[in-house]
């Protein structure tokens, strides 16, 4: 009996593994296929979902670079620095570039594209036939360690991530791909730049509809990370705070993005 169950378990495991491999084969070039998973938000209000099922999707291996973003603005003049509508990007948009179509010394070709608004990132993704990842998708992938799908079980990984979050961003950003790939083979989710997600404006509810300011209170009051599912994941806590402070037209020196695609 027991052995039969073992065989069945083994078969299921093989099945799951081959499913993952099959999906890896389906990812478009430059992207990595992520098998379905469950995202458990590190911070949530009492009324929020405890678990969010994430359907299989693909995500860019690296953040979008200056060179790639330059191709986009070449193709779409309305996203050039001099032509972008102020409602879609504030006045600092692409300010580190030398000109509309010139990167210059302040923006290395293979460094992540930053100083871009959510609208610009979204438009770029649309141009590529992709979209921005959701918070759940991004966090699911970013939550994996270098060797384990569950980074929370990897104290070394948590330490590295926390170390990046506590050090100031360098003047010049490093090229993408310099860091180690994570469990899925995705680079630079931590340690290079923050990244836009499609639903950044769901990160926190201020002035909540039903007078329930639970999440906000927990994020900002003395208890700090008390709403956290796992207090050790302080970096996730910082990301929530950061996202909640953004507006869609904001541009920031160390805020970039990468694209995703539904499989």
């Amino acid at each position: 009996m027991a052995s039969r169950r073992l065989i069945r378990l083994a078969l299921a495991a093989v099945g799951a593994a081959s499913e993952i491999l099959a999906m890896a084969a389906e990812a478009p070039p430059g992207m990595v296929a992520i098998p379905p998973g469950v995202y458990r938000p590190a911070f949530r209000a009492d009324s929020d979902l405890k678990e969010i099922v994430v359907q299989p999707f693909a995500i860019d291996r690296y953040p979008v670079t200056n060179a790639e973003f330059l191709e986009f603005v070449r193709a779409h003049p309305r996203w050039r620095r001099s032509q972008v509508k102020p409602i879609f990007a504030d006045s600092q948009y692409l300010k580190h570039w030398a000109g509309d179509l010139e990167l210059g010394p302040g923006a290395a070709t293979n460094a992540p594209a930053t100083w871009v608004s959510w609208f610009a990132a979204k438009a770029y993704a649309g141009w590529k036939g992709k979209r921005l990842p959701s918070t759940a998708e991004w966090e699911l992938v970013a939550g994996s360690g270098t060797t384990l799908p569950d980074g929370e079980k990897d104290p070394e990984f948590l330490k590295q991530v926390a170390a990046w979050h506590s050090s100031p961003a360098p003047e010049r950003l490093s090229p993408v791909g310099a860091g180690k790939a994570n469990f899925y083979g995705v680079h630079d989710l931590h340690g290079l730049v923050w990244e836009w997600v499609s639903d950044f404006n769901a990160s926190m509810v201020t002035g909540d509809a039903r007078g329930d300011n639970g999440l906000e209170r927990r994020l900002f009051c003395g208890g700090g990370a008390q709403g956290a599912k796992d207090v050790s994941d302080y970096a996730a806590y910082l990301r929530f705070g950061f996202r909640s402070s953004l507006e869609a037209r904001y541009v920031v020196h160390n805020l970039g993005f990468r694209c995703a695609k539904t499989l």
């Binding site: 209000a45 404006n201 926190m204």
Partner: peptide, 10 residues
């Protein structure tokens, strides 16, 4: 996002 309204499904 444009209006600055935050929302999510609970």
């Amino acid at each position: 996002a444009l209006l600055g309204v935050k929302f999510k499904k609970d």
